[in-house]
């Protein structure tokens, strides 16, 4: 008995470490009796949508300056605070956190288009194992710098040059979490991408409503993220076959870095 015990201990201790290191972050399972989450995200008060002033510095070739001015204009509606009649807020990311297992994420590439000196979409969801499809629809140079947002810092994931109109670059989605997209040539351009391993992320529509389906029953944290409002986190419980309603009101605004960049 004692010998057996020692042998077991020894074999456990001799097991190579990497076996432990390779932890599974998300397990794809069949979800047959899942629950759903729906809700509406509202703003406590109307917040005016800022207009971003745009400065085009003269280039060596005046023709290029003209081209740039034509493509970008001299100001841009920020489309930051899109608050409807019902006070619903558009473009809020609704992220279910601490999901250990669930459905497979959709095989769906995320197109990030550089068009009229904006990123389209402003807020997007990308799925691991799918691709970013980065496009330039403008007749001018853009570069797309996609970086993971960390505390007080950013970690560049991709920084790709798109000097020509119609250029398309595809890159795999690897890093997860919130990403900020910038163009170093046009300081006012920005987009926000949430890259996820699981399908339980949504973006609110123009009424502020969202829907997340087929979550395995259990307790979750739901984070509501918006560039111009402070985060709100709700703890919820999802029950088999039923729909949980999670509605929040965003009260505190915050100043996203783009406003500092344009001097507002």
């Amino acid at each position: 008995m004692r010998r057996l015990l020692i042998l077991i201990i020894v074999s456990v201790m001799l097991t190579p470490l990497p076996g432990f290191a390779k932890r599974v972050r998300y397990k794809v399972v069949e979800v047959s009796n899942g629950g759903h989450i729906t809700g509406v995200v509202k703003a406590a008060k109307k917040v005016p949508d800022p207009v971003l002033p745009i400065e085009i510095k003269p280039k060596e070739d005046p023709k290029e300056t003209e081209l740039e001015k034509k493509a970008c204009g001299d100001k841009q509606q920020a489309l930051m605070y899109l608050i409807g009649f019902n006070m619903g807020v558009k473009n809020v990311l609704v992220i279910v956190e601490n999901v250990k297992e669930g459905k497979a994420p959709p095989k769906k590439d995320l197109v990030i288009d550089n068009i009229k000196c904006r990123f389209e979409p402003l807020v997007g969801i990308a799925y691991v194992k799918s691709k970013y499809v980065i496009k330039n629809s403008d007749p001018i140079f853009h570069n797309t710098s996609l970086a993971k947002v960390l505390k007080n810092k950013r970690r560049t994931v991709y920084n790709l040059a798109l000097p020509r109109q119609g250029q398309v670059i595809k890159k795999p989605v690897r890093a997860t979490g919130l990403h900020e997209v910038k163009c170093d040539a046009h300081y006012w351009m920005r987009a926000y991408i949430f890259a996820s391993r699981h399908p339980y992320v949504a973006i609110t529509d123009d009424k502020g409503s969202f829907e997340i389906k087929d979550l395995p029953p259990g307790k979750y944290k739901v984070r509501f993220w918006h560039e111009g409002f402070q985060d709100v986190v709700k703890e919820i419980e999802v029950k088999p076959g039923s729909t949980t309603n999670v509605s929040v009101t965003l009260t505190k605004t915050r100043k996203p870095s783009v406003l500092s960049r344009v001097g507002l």
């Binding site: 991709y158 920084n159 790709l160 040059a161 798109l162 250029q167």
Partner: peptide, 15 residues
């Protein structure tokens, strides 16, 4: 390859 973490961008796919 560009210089990651800086505005120096990668031209691998575009040139």
């Amino acid at each position: 390859t560009g210089l990651s973490g800086t505005p120096m961008t990668s031209y691998q796919d575009s040139l």
